[in-house]
Amino acid sequence: MRSNRFLAVAAITATAALGLAACSGTTAADQSADAGASAEGYPITIESALGTATLTEKPERVATVNWANHEVPLALGVVPVGMAAANFGDDDGDGLLPWVSERLEELGAETPVLFDETDGIDFEAVADTNPDVILAAYSGLTQEDFDTLSEIAPVVAYPDAPWSTSWRDVIEVNAAGMGMAAEGEQLVADIEDEIAASVAEYPQLEGKSTMFLTHIDPADLSEVSFYTSNDTRSAFFEDLGLATPKSVQEASASGEFSGTVSAEQVDTFEDVDLIVTYGDGDLVATLEGDPLLSQMPAVRNGAIVALDGSGPLGTAANPTPLAISWVLDDYLALLAEAADKVQ
């Protein structure tokens, strides 16, 4: 269930604005102008874990920083004035992931200014785009980053913790920061409908317990690392009809995004039906040949989905507003193929 507490803040602020307008002594012309402003619902205040963004009018120039935030305005038909260049998963080196390129083409738009974030946020480049708002609901902004960006324009940052915002809240928070809260809610509903329709075609996925193995070193399999359900990749499994193993649930209680256990404790994962990981056939063969890890039911049954972590498909396993539709059918097919091997 998604939270609308960010929109509630905006609604409270807008209501206060209406009350102030009603109580003020103004001329007929002023009242007409106030009515127009109030109808638009401004000012809007959006709280985040790092601070407050206050919008006095609907932003016209939208900039985004960090991963995937630009996908929200693009999905809603707004082309950012600037956005972060893709720093992984970019298979042709143009700084754009394929689903972003396709959306820009659909909108008949040129590529916006691309911020090179290899060494962190390029504050000067962001400032040069003269934005009215900076979207960063899914990001790793530090307090210093937020404060510096706020000198350029209001910053809509993550509501709780860095890199933890669900795809639903990424849409709703960023859309609210564009003055398009209703459109954001509709986009979430449309994506949910699309997911539900596609998942219905793969009944074998229902309830299969799935974990996302990560940081596997074929030369050292003494430890097993995995993403907890606090990571968006693992959280997405439940959208796909899959279940979170009890072992992963317990590890998620700490609030960390990943966990690690010794390979000697591999029986911890007796409840895992499917494994998703980054790698290739060689990695799968390595897991199957390991005397300890091969005891995991998912490994023993070959119920493994190995994704190319440097390519678009692997990148899209981390759900983002445009990537979900782009990857959904292919991802479900791979998961279903693995689910068919579960005994």
Rank of each mutant, 00 (worst) to 15 (best):
G281P: 11
G281H: 05
G281V: 05
G281M: 03
D282P: 03
D282W: 09
D282I: 03
V284M: 00
V284A: 01
V284Q: 02
A285M: 15
T286H: 03
T286A: 11
L287T: 15
L287G: 15
L287M: 13
E288H: 08
E288Q: 05
G289M: 06
G289C: 05
D290G: 01
D290V: 12
D290C: 03
D290L: 09
D290T: 06
P291K: 04
L292F: 14
L293R: 00
L293Y: 10
S294K: 07
S294D: 07
Q295V: 08
M296Q: 08
M296N: 04
M296L: 15
P297F: 13
A298H: 03
A298D: 14
V299T: 11
V299P: 12
V299Y: 12
V299I: 15
V299K: 01
R300Q: 14
R300L: 06
R300E: 15
N301R: 06
N301S: 09
N301D: 15
G302W: 14
G302T: 13
A303C: 03
A303L: 07
I304P: 10
I304H: 06
I304G: 07
V305I: 09
A306R: 00
A306N: 04
L307G: 12
D308R: 03
S310M: 05
G311Y: 10
P312Y: 13
P312I: 01
P312V: 12
L313G: 04
L313R: 04
L313T: 08
A316S: 05
A316I: 02
A317K: 09
A317D: 04
N318L: 10
N318K: 13
P319Y: 04
P319R: 00
P319F: 00
P319H: 06
P321F: 02
P321T: 02
P321M: 02
P321N: 00
L322N: 00
L322C: 03
A323Y: 10
I324T: 14
I324W: 09
I324F: 01
S325L: 00
S325C: 07
S325Q: 06
S325K: 11
W326F: 10
